[in-house]
Amino acid sequence: MTIAINRPRALVVRAPGTNRDSDAVFALEQAGADAHVALLSEILETPSLLHNAQMLLLPGGFSFADALGAGRLFALELSTRLAAELTAFVAAGKPVIGICNGFQALIRTGLLPGANLKAALGPNDHGRFVCEWVQLQPVSQRCIWTAELDADIHCPIAHGEGRFVCDDTTLASLRSNDQIALRYSSPNPNGSVADIAGICDSSGLVLGLMPHPEDHIVQRQHPQFIRGHRGGIGLGLFQAGVRHASQL
C-alpha cells in the first residue's frame, strides 16, 4: 500500500452522465495522485471538498445527457453554484483539467479560454460521433500540463461535439499568449480551427482537451501494441499536473 505522503489529493467530479471517471482515477493514481470521485451534488452541498483538494479533474461523459448541447447544463451548475470556489481554486495555483465533456463544460463556464475570449465546441464537421485514435502534439510552454512534454501523445477521441471554434481575435490571442496546449498532429478528426485539440487559460493551470489521454496510460492500451508499437502514452500529462499540485 502506497502511503499518501506527497501524493496530492485529486478530485474527480462525477455529474449525472459522467462516465470516464474511473478511467481518470486510474490515470491520476498511476501518475502519483491520491484520486477520489466526488459527485457533483456532494461538492455543491460541501464545497470544502474542493478546498481540501490540490487538483481537479472534470472527466468525459454526457453530463445531463448533453440534452441541451454538450456540457451546457454541467457548466450552468458550476457557474451558478460554484463560480467563486472554482475561481479561488485556480487563484490558489491548483491545476484543473477538463477532458472531453469536462472541456465542453469548462469552455461554457468561461474559465476557458478566459476573460474576453470567445470559444466553443460545436458538432463535428462531419456531423457524427466518432471514436478513433489520434495523435496530439504538445504545444504550449505556458500550460503546466504540457510544458514539459517532449513527445506526441497517442490516444482515442470519442465525441460528437469536439469541433473547436473561436473568433479571429480569440485565435490570435490564444496564439500570442501560448494558450494552444495541444494540436492534432494526425488528420484533424472534427474540423477544429487550427487543428486545436486542447487549450489552457492565461494562468496555464486550467487545461481543456477533447481527446482521452487517460485511456492510454499503459502501453497495452495502444491499438498497435501487438504490432510492436511503444510510446505515446498519456501518463506524462497527468504526471505534470500531479507534480505541480504536489509542490503546492
Binding site: D23, F26, E132
Partner: peptide, 22 residues
C-alpha cells in the same frame, strides 16, 4: 463501428477494427 465508443473504460485490448491502419 466508429460511431460506437469502444474505448471507454480503457479496457479494450483487441478492438473490432485492428491492424496497421486500424
Amino acid at each position: 463501428i466508429r460511431r460506437f465508443d469502444h474505448e471507454v473504460l480503457g479496457s479494450t485490448v483487441i478492438r473490432p477494427l485492428t491492424g496497421a491502419c486500424n
